[in-house]
Design a protein around this nucleic acid. Sequence first.
DNA 1: AAAAGCCCCTGGATGC
DNA 2: TGCATCCAGGGGCTTT
Length: 270
Amino acid sequence: MPELPEVEVTRRSFADRIAGARIEWVRLGKPLRWPLGLDPQQLVGRRIQGVRRRGKYLLVDLDPGLLLLHLGMSGSLSFGPMPAGAGAHDHFDLGTSLGVLRLNDPRRFGAVVYAPDERSAEAVKLLGRLGVEPLTDAFELETFHAGLRRRNAAVKQVLLAGDLVVGVGNIYASEALFLARIRPTTRASRISRARAGRLREAVREVLARAVAKGGSTLRDFSNAQGEAGYFQLETMVYDREGQPCRVCATPVRAIRQGQRATFYCPFCQK
DNA sequence: AAAAGCCCCTGGATGC
DNA sequence: TGCATCCAGGGGCTTT
């Protein structure tokens, strides 16, 4: 599920509602990817100042400290009135004066990690290698092209790696490469400046559109208000193997790169 | 330094 | 209906 658009949509769906809340209790379910890193009781009494996003991480700013929250492959958050009970996959509850923030994550690839501040070892370990934010002015063509040129791997895998640019997961990598008319198997080092420019624009376009559509709900994604997204209804190639390309009607092709599915149009993408 | 594989975990779809 | 197999939106870690 959650790539940059889903995480950002989630953030927007509860950030304003939770800001200013006081933490009153914490409930932990089964272990997530990493331990919280702090006695949960230590969180009680702290105020939530706001919620930011970095890549696919949510940063819940506390006073003091912060929680780094990741949705993994199957996580979703909800924030609202006290739920009746906890389900089998509800693995983290933050009870606050303004409502309960709950992480539901069947596969438990997600995580909630406490860090004393953004420069602490705990935070740097998770955020330190992240690339530039694609929807900001910091995503510059010069730097992007230079980064691509020094990588020999397939451009799709370089996008997924997240150290050049963050937030592009498996769905949006295929979609962005389609928009840019670049074949996913192209070695990043061989992408011209002009094509890098197209790719940069395509990444921004596809992520911004997905945010506007509330993200993609493939199986079970919903934002913290329980609302589904609709971007999956307009994907150009993702999960459309054998179906006609929406531009040229050539059947969409599926391949595997690094144990992940890639979709592209063999006619439109060179 | 970069790239390729492995693995964490559960559930849904598919095939026999 | 039951069981085995494969696949899934991520990404850190280890090995080449």
